[in-house]
């Protein structure tokens, strides 16, 4: 029995990766939930716009690298973030002007907005592939590890190793900063409060002199920033491929719904719930229990509940359970 080794192996393969992955999902789900509570539709173009924005971060990174600029031990991509964010905000505002604003004016049903977002999704997807191609791209540079498995073993003297990749630390730190800023904005500034007011009660917000178009612009800007952050962090931590980003739509929506659609706090909690469940259920627990149990009790099978290939099934199962037993989500989002 060896609790320390068990904890180390669990941290290395489940806890730390899930923390990073959960932060990425949380950022995406926050965008989904904000758009849902202000514009009142399910934004299906989220994953593709995220891929599009990340494409510009990658181009910016390459440009900076070509100019010989680097960010020391940190990835150059962080320096290119403002470019991606600016492009995406402009792109979203353009899409709003050309597509969504019309449907707002005629007070179209939410499903029409969803259809329109499918159109935007197609266009964005085409643009991304035109620029980047459909293949996989890596753009991480700088220090790869805060400490590696070998360094950890030498330092701790344990049998199991633990690696902490810098992309994981960066993800968690950036995500926490972004979340803190978002909550500060929503709860402490006049503009943020006007967003919450608009989400709560549109008519009364109008009556109070809140300009809906301004609220919409702020919402797109925040959602765009979150998308580019989520996309860049995901790309640094794993890899960049437009199709993978499209597929992230499912965990994003699942996280937002599980947490309570329309609730920012719920989106964050939902993101971590999805990530930990996905990692925990697809992890082979044999090694963990090998350390905990006496030798003759050691498990003979992998103790993997389902294969990694079915990680979507985990997300889906959580989603279904929440939809059946608590349709408003953990934090009681709105049910429009």
């Amino acid at each position: 029995m060896d609790i320390l080794n068990a904890i180390v192996v669990l941290s290395n393969f489940v806890l730390i990766p899930a923390l990073a992955y959960g932060s990425q999902i949380a950022l995406g789900a926050l965008g989904i939930t904000l758009i849902y509570s202000i514009l009142r539709f399910a934004h299906f173009a989220h994953g593709d716009i995220m891929a599009f924005g990340t494409a510009f971060v990658i181009l910016g990174t390459w440009g900076l690298q070509a100019m010989g600029v680097s960010f020391g031990p940190l990835p150059t991509a962080l320096l290119a973030l403002p470019l991606g964010i600016a492009v995406i905000i402009l792109y979203l505002l353009l899409a709003d002007r050309m597509v969504y604003r019309f449907y707002r004016k005629v007070k179209a049903k939410p499903m029409i907005f969803v259809m329109a977002s499918l159109g935007v999704m197609f266009v964005t997807n085409g643009l991304t592939r035109l620029i980047m191609g459909p293949g996989e791209r890596r753009f991480d540079d700088g220090e790869r590890f805060v400490f590696s498995v070998r360094e950890f073993r030498e330092w701790s003297g344990l049998a199991e190793g633990l690696a902490l990749r810098s992309s994981q630390v960066i993800t968690v730190v950036v995500a926490l900063i972004a979340m803190a800023l978002l909550f500060w904005f929503l709860n402490r500034t006049k503009s943020g409060k006007s967003m919450r007011a608009y989400s709560d009660n549109e008519d009364l917000a109008l009556l109070s002199g809140i300009n809906p178009e301004r609220v919409v612009i702020i919402t797109w800007a925040i959602a765009g920033t979150l998308m580019v952050l989520a996309g860049t962090l995901y790309g640094l931590d794993k890899s960049y491929r437009p199709f993978t980003y499209f597929q992230l739509l499912l965990p994003f929506f699942a996280a937002a719904i599980v947490g309570g659609l329309g609730s920012p706090l719920g989106a964050i909690v939902g993101g971590y719930v999805i990530a930990f469940a996905e990692m925990g259920i697809t992890y082979a627990w044999r090694r963990f229990f090998n350390h905990l149990l006496p030798d003759d009790w050691a498990p003979t099978t992998m103790l993997q509940i389902i294969p990694v290939d079915y990680k979507f099934a985990v997300t889906f199962a959580i989603l279904v359970l929440v939809l059946i037993f608590r349709p408003t989500g953990i934090f009681r989002g709105k049910t429009l």
Partner: peptide, 8 residues
């Protein structure tokens, strides 16, 4: 009706 912002 609906004359307040309920979550605020």
């Amino acid at each position: 009706n609906n004359n307040i912002f309920p979550s605020m």
